[in-house]
Simulated assay, not measured.
Amino acid sequence: MTTDIPSLYESFGLYGSGVTLVTVRDGDDDRFFIAASVLTSSVDPFTLAISVGRDRDALPAIVDGATWAVSVLAEPHVPLVRRLTARTTRDERLDALGAAGAERSPEGPLWLPDALVTLWCTTHSTTPVNDQVLLVGQVARGSGHAESAPLVRWNREFRTVAALSA
């Protein structure tokens, strides 16, 4: 398996990417995960693509057609991201989202009003790729824009671009 090769693993860790919170409402439950490498896949109509691990508990609801939200995170979200990616319980992660100001959107999923932007999507297509699913979502709407330094994942840590150049 290629992930056992330290140099290749280290190399992929140096691929900088934006950091997002992906959320979906699954019945009465909120499902969510932190994702990087979200990209625009089309502009007419707007669609985005994201790689999602097959074991993510949010994936079935997303694939089944529930609206999902992608909140683009900023510098003030570093503590939230660290709590959501730490080895904590689901309840602790939900509490962290609440403490960070997550709100229920009219479409159902949680979103962060202070995110750089939030995009609400419906699933356009899915493609299995090894241990991941490449998910393409059509953007139904977006939130207003917040002003802050974008958060990036680089070298297995969460930082801002300004911190990288320091």
Rank of each mutant, 00 (worst) to 15 (best):
I62E: 05
L73P: 01
P45V: 01
A69Q: 00
G27S: 05
T127M: 11
A96D: 07
G27N: 10
Q132Y: 15
S42M: 07
L84R: 01
P76I: 00
P128A: 10
V52Y: 03
A35Q: 02
V78P: 06
G53A: 14
A58E: 02
Q132A: 14
A36E: 14
A58R: 05
V70C: 09
A58V: 05
W120F: 07
V72F: 11
G53M: 14
R83T: 10
E103G: 03
L48E: 07
V52H: 03
F32D: 04
T126N: 03
A35N: 02
P128R: 08
A100C: 08
D91V: 13
A35Y: 01
D91N: 11
A66W: 08
S37I: 09
T123D: 05
P109C: 06
E92Q: 09
A102R: 02
L112W: 00
E103M: 13
V70L: 09
V70K: 01
L94P: 11
V22C: 08
L59G: 00
D29I: 12
V43L: 15
A99E: 15
A61Y: 01
V63P: 06
L48F: 12
G65N: 08
E75D: 13
L84N: 09
H124Y: 09
A36D: 15
S42G: 04
L119S: 03
P79G: 05
G108L: 03
L39H: 13
R56P: 06
A74K: 02
D44Y: 12
T118S: 04
S42H: 08
F33W: 10
I50P: 06
D114K: 07
R90H: 12
P109Q: 03
R56I: 07
A102W: 05
L80H: 00
R104C: 10
S51D: 06
D131R: 12
D64P: 07
R87G: 15
L94S: 04
D29W: 10
A61C: 02
G101K: 06
R104I: 11
V81H: 02
I34W: 04
L73R: 04
V52I: 12
A35C: 02
C121R: 01
L112G: 00
A61V: 02
A69N: 01
T47A: 11
T88M: 10
P60F: 09
T89A: 05
A102F: 07
V129R: 15
V63K: 04
A36L: 12
G108S: 02
A36P: 14
A58P: 03
S41Q: 06
R93A: 12
A115N: 00
D30E: 15
